[in-house]
Design a protein around this nucleic acid. Structure first.
Lengths: 186, 186
DNA sequence: CTCTCTATTCAGAAATTACTAAAAACACCG
DNA sequence: CGGTGTTTTTAGTAATTTCTGAATAGAGAG
């Protein structure tokens, strides 16, 4: 038997449940496993780090499923393991700063998905340059796409790396950003 | 028998094939059906509108599968049906302006996913306000998330609605945007 | 070294999603 | 109308993804 007095029965409040279910649903729409998203939502709402078995119990999924979900969330760098005095089990906590979560996940998706796409586009543009017979149109489309992605991710990188304080300021400027940028730009 | 002289055998160039396969793969990672993404990639590269059966043949998928994929792409508003003189079949073409594609898809995803999430968050915050015993922490997390999403989508909306010309200008400012905004904001 | 608790891996089961072929519906023509 | 070419729907199949429970591995305590 475990040494632990079974921390809490830990039934979710209706609000927590609602948020966690919705978050899981949103996950699936963005290519993220439902359980992974639910585990994240739970940790995000939790005022203290949770051990895996408690997560499993709370969400009513298998312990092994939680294990892989936690591993994945650690891969996304938005969940980390911490330890609690007198408890041998790993406990997990989520980053709580929403801006930070967004920043990290964006970076990770850029690294995993946009960067490889840019590499493919580079190769495609190279290859279509080498064979200039006929596919002038293809070449144009691919070049367009490549340049758009480069420009867009460049801009995005800049915004994403702004110190949190600066961003909060920018968000206050709503309605002025376009005008400002527009004037300088057009 | 069809009246059409089977437009073209229409084997893809290696480059087109590479791009289409990669695009399909990227689709799956963002919660978009692989075939849907491939159909879109094909239309994006095609210099002329294509009829469904030609798409099916080129991608080697069932005609019915193409039909639903096209329907979905029309739902995203990035593909539309056009007609070709002397041909009863529907032909389909993709928007070609990459910025426009991005803008429309972003708007659509906001409408389908972010807006409902904001509604859920509103409800959650309301409910947790009504029961103020205990879940002060939950309330804080949910409020944070709600405000972040509102601010972020607000800013995003502004950028996304910039006239294409202005955006191209902004993209040229790379390296200066943060400084500019930062000065005004901090 | 062994015992106990915990975490991970894995092979199969379950569930979901995607796809196909056939049928039905539609639209236009004569 | 009836016929022909086309698109959409549908019901079943196939493929993929997710999840589980059991087995394995790991890590510290005594």
């Amino acid at each position: 038997m475990s040494v632990h007095t079974k921390t809490t029965p830990n039934s979710l409040t209706p609000v927590a449940q609602k948020f966690i279910l919705h978050w899981g649903e949103m996950g699936t729409r963005w290519g993220i496993n439902r359980t992974v998203a639910q585990v994240h939502a739970l940790l995000f709402l939790s005022p203290r780090p949770l051990p895996a078995d408690e997560i499993a119990e709370t969400l009513a999924v298998a312990r092994s499923n939680v294990s892989t979900s936690l591993r994945e969330l650690q891969g996304w760098r938005i969940v980390r393991v911490v330890h609690v005095l007198g408890d041998r089990r790993d406990h997990f906590e989520s980053i709580k700063d929403v801006w930070e979560i967004f920043r990290i996940v964006s970076e990770e998706r850029k690294r995993r998905e946009i960067d490889p796409t840019l590499r493919v586009l580079d190769e495609c543009v190279q290859e279509v340059k080498a064979n200039p017979q006929g596919d002038a149109y293809t070449r144009e489309r691919l070049t367009d796409m490549r340049e758009f992605l480069m420009a867009m991710t460049g801009l995005f990188d800049e915004v994403i790396h702004m110190p949190a304080g600066a961003l909060k300021g920018v968000l206050k400027l709503r309605g002025k950003v376009v005008t400002m940028l527009g004037k300088k730009a057009v």
